[in-house]
Nucleic acid binder design. Structure first.
Length: 458
RNA sequence: GUAGUUGUAGCUCAGUUGGUUAGAGCGCCUGGUUGUGGUCCAGGAGGUCGCCGGUUCGAUUCCGGUCUUCUACCCCA
């Protein structure tokens, strides 16, 4: 049988895992610095927790887990006979794989509300699953790195989360653009144009502006029964780049003015520190997830810095006023953002942004030339490891060529060759694999040389 | 979910208007070189031509189905 992995999933080679861990480590350290604590939730959730939280499209993309045992005997027979997949689903599947980390978090907060202190700041770095058609930068299994805070309406947190975005991407040396908008501003636009009832249709249309142009947006809004008068009003508002201008257009919409006030409040906090990356107000930013209610964020790699790169958003998030409400806990507001680790990885790989030392973790490989030397080498190996050096010993006294080839394959920066001569003097043949230079050094001297050199425990 | 696309050696890819032993480069193994890898030279191993079925004297090649890859739509990280 030919081995394979399911569609949209993949294996990771050591070098890839090390690189990915470099991303995780950078993100995690930043989260912790800003006062967030780790939690974990199961990969499976009850389907009742997940369904209906991501819109109709999201429900379709949920992975369902078949019930154990003789599931068909308990299936809804009528639905089964009619081949009604949706009807039969509830009777044969009660669990599903998590689609994101935010909804399970909301469930977590409600269940553990008496065990946690509000505002509760948590982070989670775990895989999620979506039954989407795979494409570039789109997988069925991928990691999300989420930070959220629930139990406070302070716009301080919006500012803090954008600072986290800025800091992480600065540390990763990935030039990015952080786009900001507010759902209330979008609602205000719909209200000002007199199509508040077409709010969702309007936002999904204008979200595509940079992709399909103003003509495409106009076309889509027409197809979704938004009249021409409203469309021209919306178009005018889309040209606005400053909040002050927008305010003038929002005299008739209280929600819209509230949205602007929130953005101004955000800036009052955020503008106290100069960001490294671009942070811009983008009135066309909409985001599909329909639980957002206030500020929304999206991050993309900077097209000016990487003109050849084609990649969707590498992060997103926003404020959700009542996510816990559906689980029976009213009036708890939350805000959070997510990092798409797989896409960040792809961008960094494509643009060559990983530091050179994130490839291999081994610092030195010992090579013994005969059985006696091999035992001696193992003692030196113990000493090196005790000193905290990532060291290994070739498992037998094989041909020099074979052992050196292995050293090359491991991409190890140094080797130490040990034969009868070295055993006599206690000085090992310490070799730099890049330059080929070789010198006689005692184990203690080798420890000094290697301390901190390309030291990585990822 | 809709439409298209891809699959041949470990990797990247040729090729076959249906016909006997399916090729290249890189990689791998052995030797040249008994304590020195990356270069060079010589030799070698490695293929159910994605899978299942159909047409045919004969299918890797044609047809159907299926899985997979990549892409557009949808949606999204």
């Amino acid at each position: 049988m030919k081995p394979s992995v399911p569609k949209g999933t993949r294996d990771f080679l050591p070098a890839e895992v090390i690189k990915r861990n470099f991303i995780f480590k950078t993100i995690r350290e930043t989260f912790v610095k800003y006062g967030y604590q780790p939690i974990e939730t199961p990969v499976m959730e009850n389907l009742s927790t997940l369904t209906g939280k991501y819109g109709e499209e999201g429900d379709r993309l949920l992975f369902k887990v078949l019930n154990n045992g003789d599931f068909l005997s308990k299936a809804n027979e009528k639905a089964l006979a009619e081949k009604d997949s949706n009807g039969v689903l509830a009777s044969i599947s009660k669990r599903g794989l998590r689609y994101d980390l935010t909804v399970p978090f909301a469930r977590f907060v409600v269940m553990h509300q008496n065990d946690i202190a509000f505002p509760f700041k948590r982070y989670a770095i775990q895989p999620v699953w979506r039954a989407d058609r795979p494409q570039k930068g789109r997988y069925q299994e991928f990691y999300q790195c989420d930070v959220d805070v629930v139990g406070s309406e302070s716009l301080m947190y919006e500012a803090e989360l954008v600072q986290i975005y800025d800091e992480v991407f600065a540390k990763l040396n990935l030039k990015s653009v952080i786009k900001i908008n507010n759902r209330k501003v979008l609602y205000g636009m719909a209200e000002a144009a007199g199509v508040a009832d077409k709010f969702v249709e309007m936002t999904t249309a204008i979200d595509k502006l940079d992709k399909v142009g103003i003509e495409g947006v106009r076309k889509e809004m027409r197809e979704r029964d938004i009249d021409d008068a409203a469309i021209s009003k919306i178009e005018k508002m889309l040209e606005i780049t400053g909040l002050a201008e927008l305010k003038a257009a929002f005299t008739e919409t209280e929600t819209g003015r509230k949205g602007i006030a929130e953005l101004e409040e955000f800036h009052a906090y955020f503008d106290t520190k100069q960001p490294t990356n671009k942070v811009v107000f983008d009135i066309t930013l909409a985001r599909g997830l329909n639980y957002y209610t206030g500020c929304i964020f999206e991050v993309a790699a900077d097209k000016e810095a990487y003109p050849d790169l084609v990649m969707g958003s590498i992060g997103g998030g926003g404020r959700y006023d009542d996510l816990t409400g559906i689980f029976g806990m009213k009036g708890v507001s939350g805000v959070g953002v997510s990092f798409g680790a797989a896409r960040i990885f792809d961008v960094m790989e494509e643009m060559n942004l990983f530091p050179a030392e994130t490839g291999e973790t081994l610092q030195i490989l010992l090579i013994a030339l005969d059985d006696e030397a091999h035992k001696y080498a193992f003692r030196q190996l113990n000493a090196l490891r005790a000193a905290g050096i990532n060291a290994d010993l070739y498992p037998e006294a094989a041909k020099m060529k074979k052992m050196m080839k292995y050293a090359n394959a491991r991409n190890v920066p140094f080797t130490a060759i040990i034969g009868s001569e070295e055993m006599k003097t206690g000085k090992l043949a310490f070799k730099n694999m890049e330059t080929g230079e070789q010198e006689k050094l005692g184990t203690g001297e080798i420890m000094e040389r290697l301390k901190g050199y390309r030291k990585s425990n990822l």
